[in-house]
Design a binder for these strands. Sequence first.
DNA 1: TTGACATACCTAGCAGTGTTATGTGATGCT
DNA 2: AGCATCACATAACACTGCTAGGTATGTCAA
Lengths: 112, 112
Amino acid sequence: MLSKELVAASTVPLVLSVLTQGESYGYALIQRVRELSDGRIAWTEGMLYPVLHWMADEGLVESEWKEAESGHRRKYYRICQEGRKALQAEQKEWLTVHATLTKLWKTQPGLI
Amino acid sequence: MLSKELVAASTVPLVLSVLTQGESYGYALIQRVRELSDGRIAWTEGMLYPVLHWMADEGLVESEWKEAESGHRRKYYRICQEGRKALQAEQKEWLTVHATLTKLWKTQPGLI
DNA sequence: TTGACATACCTAGCAGTGTTATGTGATGCT
DNA sequence: AGCATCACATAACACTGCTAGGTATGTCAA
């Protein structure tokens, strides 16, 4: 299981990244990310929904209720312009840290 | 400047990674990481020292006071067996998230 | 038809924590 | 003497993340 720090740091970029592939809703996002990570990133609903609300408040995404054929009501999220900008910034930050870490790991035989 | 979430997620792995290259002390760690990240990871002393204390409590590192030729007293940290194990776990977690993110980014023309 | 499980969303409340602000004191340079 | 740099330390409280709990619909087997 991932540390809560790493979860905190990766949730917003992951959500934004998934949404660049098309709109989605909370429950499906949890499953999509679990799938993409081979079960290693296992979000709970209780942690994701507040994040989605915050992202909507910040204007990173917009939401819309829709009725699925299944009969369930779903709140679909779509990435906004602001969200794309935020994603680019997040990517840059992430890659900065990743570059620094791999720089250190490369010099360490046995690591990775 | 990095988000506080990303700083929280990367501080321990960065410290452990630097210490695999040999013992060091707080003040020097801050400069080393700033240098490695081309100034983009700028830790403050107030955030690092408590982390180092926590890492010592957890048995990830051990510390020893030494007198530098300069006359300054420095607390040197050395990585322990427990710390190496923790680093490996941290690397695995980090690479899991990184793989998931890049999987999503690869399919997005224009990103990265 | 009842129970169990999956789908799908929501939030109160408080435990836990991060960092700001501040402190100490030595050294070195001008 | 004064200032910058080196080097370590932590109290306290503002903030926040998540657990735990809640609602409701659909489906399928027993």
